[in-house]
Design a protein around this nucleic acid. Structure first.
Length: 272
DNA sequence: ATGCCTTATTTCATAAGA
């Protein structure tokens, strides 16, 4: 069984490359992030032709997640209980609803596939550590932890996969000094990951195809990929029951090359 | 090193990404 997670940065813009990659890598379960389209407009027919069922969860221009599975797709959850929405900066005019009533964004979709409870997750970016978005990010992780704790009670085989927007350790960024004062590396964000691991989830660290660091993201700008100025922020957090089945894991950096790539590469995990 | 931003939209400018 092959499980993959990939932030595609628009499923519409990436569709030719996504289909090509699915055909080549042949994963059984795929977690997608940043589909940047609505649930209704997800290109379901195109991936169905390759044998996948789809559970998409998207609301338009930003965010959006999806699950593809060729091994069953049951008990779909769009979002999770207690998932917060983004309230904006204090005093900021929000588009809808009263403060405290903002709808959650489309950042999580879960389903049971091939006997595994799988979640495709896209954590908030956080922008800057002094922003409301950063507070929202930490709130979102806290709510995720509570939701996953409940899920784990009924699902010993569980994998939480996706773009966590946090580099777990200094080795997971190309230059820790370049991130001084930035999000993705702050102690509270890293603690949020540690709190998830404390639930009994293991970080399934992939093998890099090149170099010592299994980076999964490289900025489009300044030739970051060519210089391997990357980060490891796309993660697979698996229960022991799943982690003990891992026979191999790698970052497919080939998918970051060529014309029209996502700025993230897929993380691929093989299970016995 | 496999090329030096990209995306969708309230589109010829902007916000967001990390």
């Amino acid at each position: 069984m092959r499980v993959a997670t990939w932030n595609v940065n628009s499923v519409k813009a990436r569709l030719p490359r996504l289909l090509e990659w699915l055909d080549e890598a042949k994963p059984d379960i795929v977690c997608l992030q940043e589909i940047k389209t609505t649930t209704a407009l997800f290109p379901e027919d195109e991936v169905a032709e390759l044998g996948y069922e789809v559970a998409a969860h998207g609301d338009g221009r930003w965010n959006g997640v999806a699950l593809l599975s060729s091994v069953g797709l049951d008990d779909v959850s769009r979002g999770f209980p207690g998932e917060p929405g983004y309230e904006g900066e204090p005093g900021e005019l929000t588009l809808i609803d009263e403060p405290g009533l903002r709808r959650p964004e489309t950042r999580a979709v879960g389903a049971t596939c091939g006997g595994i409870r799988v979640w495709s997750l896209y954590a908030p970016n956080g922008r800057t550590p002094d922003s409301a978005h950063y507070a929202y990010k930490l709130d979102w992780f806290a709510a995720l932890r509570t939701a996953l704790a409940a899920e784990l009670a009924g699902h010993p085989q569980l994998a939480a996969c996706g773009d966590f927007n946090v580099a777990p350790a200094d080795d997971d960024v190309w230059d820790p000094a370049a991130f001084a004062g930035s999000t993705h590396v702050t102690p509270p964000e890293r603690q949020a990951l540690a709190d998830l691991r404390a639930l009994g989830l293991r970080d399934v660290v992939p093998t890099p195809m090149k170099g010592p660091h299994p980076f999964t993201y490289w900025d489009y700008r300044a030739g970051a990929f060519a210089k391997n100025n990357g980060m490891r922020i796309d993660l697979v957090y698996a229960t022991e029951a799943v982690a003990s089945r891992v026979t191999g894991a790698y970052v497919d950096r080939e998918a970051r090359k060529g014309k029209g790539p996502s700025d993230h590469a897929p993380v691929v995990v093989d299970l016995s």
